[in-house]
Nucleic acid binder design. Structure first.
Lengths: 339, 339
DNA sequence: CTGAAAGCGCTAACAT
DNA sequence: ATGTTAGCGCTTTCAG
């Protein structure tokens, strides 16, 4: 049994497809009498428009896609809580796609792929793709990039000032009297730009305090997960001269690091102070609660959505801009102790 | 400047659209010579198929949607880590939609909405929709429901045995010598079926141990979040005769409860033992690590995807089945203490 | 205010 | 193996 189409409705109502379309979309004025006739037919037939056909005809879908490396990273999950309502309010539905940070998959998505037509625009958080890879993107796809890449002028970029934020974090540790500060999360390779900016801030804070950086206290990790933090912390504790504080490049890393410290019977912050990054909910409830850098997620979400939709709706080419959201340091028990 | 179409390619290559389509889709055999000609034309024109047009013509999209109430619930995020690869392996792309547990939004999605055509099928985790509401669903939409609803025979349902799992959790607390056991997370209203099954298990365990249930130790919460757990635990501690153990209906609730206990200077599990539900990663790293019920998420994901795709591809109507994944009790520090 | 008809870009039945 | 062509279901220009 075939789906009922707009034409079926038109036939039953005794009007033309044009009129039915008008009624369905609230276009043009339609006589109340006609409208009612049509609506009755729609109800009777259980008609629903085929959104695919509509999209094909109009060339727009009303959907935007948010592409993230991992959906189980709380930072993204929390960011989406801002993005989704912001987009809905502006009449767009949000769908989410996970890439696993896979370079190829990411490339397909921003490239001139055929899925292009499914979405009016994309908010993209790259992981596997280097800055250069971004260049091969589809120039027709309205795009906003999240994170640490710099716009090439054809898309917008929104993030926070990672270097400054990282400097703040490490400065906080210095101000607490810590002197041997480690860093967990560096990624010294092309796609590790986010991590490298944080390392840069780590160094800047040392410089500002006239302290040399002990390179052996900078631990690289493949990702920013709990497991990475746990492993790296273990390595630091096996160091001949272990740190008295650690700057972790995410709250998940911090959570893993704290886990290892507890396993080894060490206290946080008495033995080792820990500060994270992202301000995920987890850190507000864990024991100890985790000091962190709090990016203004709502602002990031709002900016990203606004820019994207401006890009979608504008007929002129929109120049790409760099948008910077605020951040602040939130000091909690993992550095201050229990008050 | 118009997008280049299949017809443009055909013209340039001097073949018919049919042949280009064949080449693009790897259909029928095409002479190597022709194929090459076509491919050259495609490259030269930068052609990409319009997936919308294709979907409209074929009536399928190759996409399935996973609908969850909240993306920032780790349980769903972790479940998706199983669903996405399973679906990709079978040739389907996965998109995720968040409903905020909103009844209306959920209803639209499973109802005969126009978005129906965007997806070949849906894996749906309802929250705002009651068992009855499910009945108004679009009968043509291949559907697999996750969680605690029971299939009406027109869709599949996959979950674990919540009553048994909850009984196990509470029995574990009894076996540790705890006598005053509380429960956090009941939801005594139509959409709280999941919660009610857990409460049922809570009661069953009491019955099995010949212990009466103290109704004042069953705390209802609106959701299963950390904040809910924290608030409920505070209420329990203000009880004239506080519990010595708590069964929390999610690990997030457990995390919140532990937070409150620590704030009040109480020890877990010495003063109060805590067990959660879901086995999210958080609980494996927190202090103390959280005892929990571990649903076999990989199995749930795999079953859901398999059934859905069977439903999508089958021409005959597929009878709805109830699928049950395994669960097991994982005892960690929050009940056993530090060993 | 409504009708007729030409696409949107692709697939696939039918023909050769 | 490839060409022809009629749709898929909707929107929208152009008439009336």
């Amino acid at each position: 049994m075939r789906e009922t189409t707009l034409r079926d409705v038109a036939d039953l109502a005794g009007v033309s497809p044009r009129t039915v379309s008008n009624v369905v979309n609230g276009y043009a004025r339609v006589t109340d009498a006609t409208r009612e006739k049509v609506e009755r037919a729609i109800a009777q037939l259980g008609y629903r428009p085929n959104v695919l056909a509509r999209n094909l005809a109009t060339g727009r879908s009303g959907q935007i896609v948010v592409v993230v490396p991992y959906l189980d990273t709380p930072y993204f999950a929390e960011l989406l809580q801002g993005i989704i309502p912001a987009a809905r309010k502006l009449g767009y539905n949000v769908l989410v796609d996970q890439t696993d940070g896979d370079r190829e998959h990411e490339g397909e998505l921003i490239g001139r792929g055929s899925r292009r037509f499914l979405f009016d625009g994309m908010i993209f958080s790259p992981l596997g793709l280097s800055q250069e890879d971004l260049a091969v993107r589809d120039p027709d796809l309205p795009l906003v990039v999240l994170g640490e890449r710099v716009s090439d002028g054809t898309f917008d970029h929104v993030g926070i000032d990672d270097v400054a934020a990282s400097t703040d974090a490490v400065t906080h540790l210095f101000s607490l009297g810590r002197r041997r500060i480690a860093a967990i999360g560096d990624q010294p390779y092309p796609t590790g730009e986010a991590a490298q900016l944080r390392t840069q801030g780590f160094r800047a804070a040392h410089a500002a305090h006239g302290r040399p950086v002990d390179e052996s206290l900078i631990i690289s990790t493949a990702r920013f997960n709990r497991a990475d933090g746990a492993t790296a912390m273990a390595a630091l504790l096996d160091h001949a001269d272990p740190p008295d504080a650690v700057f972790c490049y995410s709250d998940l890393v911090a959570s893993g690091a704290i886990h290892t410290l507890h396993q080894r019977g060490l206290r946080v912050p008495e033995d080792v102070a820990i500060i994270g990054y992202d301000d995920i909910e987890d850190g507000r409830y864990s024991s100890p609660t985790i000091s962190t850098i709090q990016p203004d997620k709502k602002a990031i979400a709002q900016l990203a959505v606004e820019r994207l939709i401006k890009r979608i709706t504008s007929t002129e080419p929109v120049p790409g801009v760099e948008l910077r959201a605020e951040h602040r340091l939130i000091a909690r028990e993992s550095t201050l102790g229990i008050s």
